[in-house]
Design a protein around this nucleic acid. Sequence first.
DNA 1: ATGGGGGCCTGCCGGC
DNA 2: TGCCGGCAGGCCCCCA
Length: 278
Amino acid sequence: MPELPEVETVRRGLLPVMEGQRIAKADVNRPDLRFPLPLNMAERLKGATVLSLWRRSKYILADLDTGETLLIHLGMSGRILISGQTIGEFHHAHPAPQKHDHVEFHMALGPRVTFNDARRFGAMDLMPTATTHAHALLNQLGPEPLGNDFHETYLTQRLANRLTPIKSALLDQHIIAGLGNIYVCEVLHRAGVHPARLTAETDAAPLVPIIRQVLQEAIEAGGSTLNDYRQTDGKLGYFQHRFKVYGRKGEACLTCGTPIERLVQSGRSSFYCPSCQR
DNA sequence: ATGGGGGCCTGCCGGC
DNA sequence: TGCCGGCAGGCCCCCA
């Protein structure tokens, strides 16, 4: 699930329990996720205080007072659960351990942050804070779609002379960092662009504000449900969001009523309205 | 250099 | 009920 808006929602949910707080203990329950977990991870996290919790693309990064930075990626199925947290009069007790609880952070003031990932496409790493931007997972990423380096000129230039469907190009993290399968489908629908259109024959400029809007709206939707989630079950990362095309094959296009179609590109599903998107 | 396909994992859902 | 294929919001690697 987690694309940029969900990851940002997770980060915001973690802020009150992690930023400025000390990790009393970390439980590392297996040696690897997608990659081997860093050597002596539990020892390197024990007693560390989180100075700041930030995000780059779909990665959450925690700068620690030990001089290291913790990187967290949720992959496809990664979830984070906060327990032992009190919001108003509502207290979350620590639940029984669940299958696939791979890493648990016991915060000094009581809350516990549990990373659960059934498919283990997620990842964690530790690196010196000074070298964060050179990390192999981060140094090839394109600009943040909500940042100043992402603009009409940039996208037009990057998409020119490419013989690839626009769908694939927008999923390419080297071009834009943070979009995933859902939001690319939603962006293309809002833009009226068929997912199979080649980038070379697509006007890139109008996509820029649409990408920003779609992501911003999703972040706001995540923010508005954050409190509900924390007050109900403490699970971060999945929030209800009404999609216009994603997952709606056969259902009526909300704009024109035409049935939404599904097509497979590079092994990924693309959902689109054959009438609105050309 | 670029684009496409395979692979990594587990879970769930629908059909037989 | 059980089994099987297809599907899943990500991303790295290899090959043409």
